[in-house]
Design a protein around this nucleic acid. Structure first.
Lengths: 236, 236
DNA sequence: TAGTGGTCTAGACCACTAG
DNA sequence: TAGTGGTCTAGACCACTAG
């Protein structure tokens, strides 16, 4: 145990007790004072160890009472997604279909809470000369700023808005579904009759709740890679 | 600003500077000492504020150098999933199809790193008297423990293993795909010719990397609800 | 060598809880 | 009233960085 700080040692020991069910959800931990005596540590050091367990979701402090073991967050997963990594391994070409002012779509009407104009950009993504995904993005259109740059390289929505926008404190939503293919989509992706597609819709709001980007990525089922893993809250 | 602790005030101010791009990714923050002078606070209090910004993913400390603003984690989402909430709103009945020892499936062979036996449990989930989802679960089979209890109520994998297992420090994986429907599936779910399905596969490993549960949930596309949101690391 | 963050102590005062 | 966690201070000693 050389080199392990005292607060980390304390955190690990308690974590192990929780994993081994010596401490169960709802149980109260020894008080900060008791732990300080047990580990021959100052109260400050004990608190540092406990704050780790708190930030990793193991315990909850209740002022005036004590620390309690939480219920584990079993339903929570972390999903990493962007338009490129979701299909990139398979692609060999990306073709820009169109850049234009967003049409008065039903969908876009709903999204447009501001009076801002939006640009619609459509791409087709190819693998082995065959289309495998169809990407539609809607981005706010500023008169002053040119949209030509957006035509040059394929990019994710965050990459496209990064120049005018901080990407901290952004609210994101991602919706995954398997819609029936429309005739247009069947033509674009050259779909077989039974061929399933996955649709991933992205929505980005800034800290002031203004829409800064919306995207729809339609992928042939077999080219789509969506994996989520344990929410791993590690402090160290 | 009454009632806001000093460390929180400091954290909020710096957070705002990062959001407003006064501080940009890669920039170095003032040193702990400088911040202590600026906020008329002790170094301990400054460190507490900075530790919040660290745990929320805004900054990274580099020993001997200083604190640096991180790149925002734009691709990371939080997804809440369990078998019930993903379709529950639509269901009116859940029928147990079968409980038996897991067959020597290709799939199961791969998963079985241990010599343990597995039970297979199959369910059909109905809405409006029509099947909308098909659920297959594989759970470790202990000779000593009865599996009858597993037949009675429909439950999620974590709920089923919770009695013999701590749910802390579990490794979970979730894979989302849209496979072509097999003839068996078409029959079970009474699928139309073009009707898309979504498959969510869950895998649970315990802290010792032993498989403690595997599940496949096939849903009719229109009954499936999969939404992920910003990974919101809030300390307060 | 001066400056940085990392660990740790021993204390103070506070609001809240529960008998 | 005794015990709990929450906030905060002023200090010590350390390893590491970079000129």
């Amino acid at each position: 145990m050389i080199g392990v700080p005292l607060y980390m040692h304390l955190a690990n020991q308690i974590k192990e007790k929780i994993n081994h069910r010596t401490l169960k959800p709802g149980d109260m931990l020894p008080s900060e004072h008791e732990l300080a005596v047990e580990y021959n540590a100052s109260r400050t050091t004990v608190r540092k160890g406990l704050s780790i367990l708190f930030s990793e979701g193991f315990i909850n402090p209740v002022p005036g009472k004590g620390y309690f073991v939480k219920e584990p967050e079993i339903d929570s997963y972390t999903l990493y997604f962007n338009e490129r990594s979701c299909i990139e391994n398979y692609t060999d070409e990306i073709r820009l279909l169109e850049v234009k002012l967003a049409p008065p779509d039903k969908l876009i009407q709903q999204l447009r809470d501001t009076k801002k104009s939006f640009v619609m950009i459509r791409w087709l993504i190819y693998s082995n000369k065959k289309p495998v995904a169809y990407d539609v993005k809607y981005l706010p259109y500023d008169r002053g700023k040119p949209i030509v740059e957006r035509e040059i390289h394929y990019a994710t929505i965050p990459e496209m808005v990064a120049k005018h926008q901080s990407l901290f404190s952004i609210k994101k939503t991602l919706r995954i579904s398997a819609p029936k293919a429309t005739p247009e989509l069947k033509k674009l992706l050259d779909l077989g009759s039974d061929e399933p597609i996955i649709l991933v819709e992205q929505k980005f709001l800034n800290a002031q709740d203004k829409l800064i980007g919306f995207g729809q990525l339609y992928m042939k089922g077999e080219y789509c890679n969506l994996v989520a893993v344990s929410s791993y809250r590690q402090t160290q």
